[in-house]
């Protein structure tokens, strides 16, 4: 569903991604781990064009999305095409990024309304059932500032799902949460994975990666150092850098 071919990304002089090759199949839950600054988040942001890659190719559902090829030339994706592409990918951010001036319910309905032209009771019912599934129906008329971090993140997940994405991207979804609130968010994500959603999760939650991940990717210094099943990565890592990282984490 997602394919990255030799993707490079630099911010000025700083090279953040150095030749990433990755393919994500339908129904997979790919957990991306690694030290901070290793390019995990940047890779995720490149997938839905929040960042433009420097070179390489990104395919979503077999269509090239990182740029348009015109003979020898590579053209930048038109804003409209980028927007359309993004609706197939749901994104959950580390800092929730809920819209503070809208109620919880409005947070869920604004994008379907504006982007897909949905309206009326059908849209509201879908939003309400999504809120129910993340356990926050009673908060539907509250503003986000009245919610705890964990609740806000659950709303953010529901908001992304309201666009019916075929793939969900999670950018360190629990890193900004107080420890006691991490569980409720992971629980929602786990349920989503069990329902068969294709997910790419950048995370520091090794327990989640081990339990829910179908594949674990270890990144360091802009490269994928090692990938495999959770057992392979956590029980028998092959590369020294992976071992070093895991030792630090589980010390």
């Amino acid at each position: 569903m997602i394919k990255l071919e030799n993707v490079y990304k630099s911010f000025g002089e700083l090279e953040v991604l150095k030749g990433i090759n990755l393919e994500v199949q339908e129904g997979e839950v790919v957990c991306v781990i690694g030290p901070s600054g290793s390019g995990k988040s940047t890779m995720l942001r490149c997938m839905n064009q929040l960042e433009t890659i420097t070179s390489g190719k990104i395919y979503i559902n077999n269509s090239l999305v990182s740029h348009i090829e015109d003979g020898e030339d590579q053209l930048k994706l038109h804003e409209k095409e980028a927007s359309k592409l993004r609706t197939t990918l749901g994104m959950v951010f580390q800092r929730f990024n809920l819209f503070p001036h809208l109620t919880v319910l409005e947070n869920l309905t604004i994008a379907p309304k504006m982007v897909k032209g949905e309206k009326g009771t059908g849209m509201d019912e879908k939003a309400i059932s999504l809120l129910k599934s993340v356990g926050l129906l009673d908060k539907k008329n509250e503003y986000p500032s009245k919610l705890s971090g964990g609740q806000q993140q659950r709303v953010a997940i529901a908001r992304a799902l309201a666009m019916n994405p075929s793939i969900m991207l999670f950018d360190e979804p629990t890193s900004a949460l107080d420890p006691e609130l991490v569980g409720e968010v992971l629980e929602v994500m786990k349920k989503l994975a069990e329902d068969g959603m294709t997910m790419v999760v950048v995370t520091h939650e090794m327990g989640f990666a081990r339990e829910v991940g179908t594949r674990v990717i270890f990144m360091d210094e802009g490269q994928i150092v090692e990938e495999g099943s959770p057992e392979e990565i956590f029980e028998q890592p092959k590369m020294d850098r992976t071992k070093l990282f895991l030792n630090k984490i589980f010390k």
Binding site: L50, S83, F99, A156
Partner: peptide, 27 residues
Amino acid sequence: IDKGQMEAAKALGMSYYQAMFKIIIPQ
């Protein structure tokens, strides 16, 4: 207004102008 707001709006498929007029300016 926090840059995350524009990113979140874009990630939901909104165009720059939709995000500007419905998300950023009202805030």
